[in-house]
Amino acid sequence: MFEFIKGNLEEVLADGIVVEIQGIAYRIYTSQLLLNELPPIGSTIKIYLHMNVREDDISLYGFLSKDERNMYRSLNSVSGVGPKAAMGILSIYNANEIIWAIVGEDTKTLTKAPGIGKKTAQRIILELKDKLKVEDIKVTENTNTSSENPEVKEEAIEALSALGYQSSQIFRIINDVYREGMSIEVLIKETLKCFASRT
């Protein structure tokens, strides 16, 4: 029903914001990452929306980008992952980081989110890993909130795939060996060492 809302940022709450348009105030639930990126109160803000409808409640969830909203919808589609849990994951990881965790079958990363246990993390991976690809990762100045460099990882994956290694194995090992500031050459070398040690 709603695509986005553009209005004045009136209030910042513990788990969301209030945006005013022509005298009407909208209460919008958001991630903690979004709250950290908000402009000053009184600024004009554009928020992409998802409306969650239940028998006893209609709630709005807000996102700074369509990619973040799409990730929320994907997570929320997984059995056992409700709006609160999906937003909890997005409160500590951006969309890029979640894709890396899913395609790399990294349950350890996903379980760091509030309310996500090992079984739920495994279910997320099982239901979404075939729907998400490393090509879905967007490399932009304002979406990468961590020190990781998806571009380096992606180039390493392409190089290792060309050598005949399986994508699922590449994702897992790269996630294990990657360190901040690592060059593509070093990342490939360390990944190949791990492959050699497991054969």
Rank of each mutant, 00 (worst) to 15 (best):
G7A: 04
I47F: 11
T44A: 09
L13Q: 11
L33I: 14
S43W: 08
P83Q: 02
E68Y: 08
R27S: 10
R27I: 14
V18W: 08
I41N: 00
P40H: 09
P83H: 04
I24N: 03
N36W: 10
A86R: 05
L38S: 07
G42E: 04
R73L: 13
A85V: 15
Y48K: 10
G7V: 01
A85N: 12
V53N: 02
G62L: 04
A14F: 10
Y29D: 15
N76T: 10
G80E: 00
E68N: 09
L33C: 11
I28R: 07
L38W: 08
E10G: 07
K66R: 15
N36E: 15
D56W: 05
S31H: 03
G82K: 10
S65F: 13
K84P: 07
L38N: 05
G82Q: 04
I47T: 14
L34A: 12
Y48L: 09
G62C: 06
L9W: 10
P39V: 13
M71F: 14
S43T: 05
Y72F: 15
E20P: 00
P83M: 01
G42V: 00
M87H: 08
K84Q: 09
N76C: 04
A25R: 13
P40Q: 00
V18F: 05
S65L: 12
L35Y: 06
I21C: 06
N52S: 14
L35H: 08
G88M: 06
T44I: 11
Q22G: 07
K46C: 12
G88T: 03
E20Q: 03
G42K: 01
L13I: 05
Y29T: 15
M71A: 03
H50D: 08
N8C: 03
D56E: 14
N52L: 12
K46H: 08
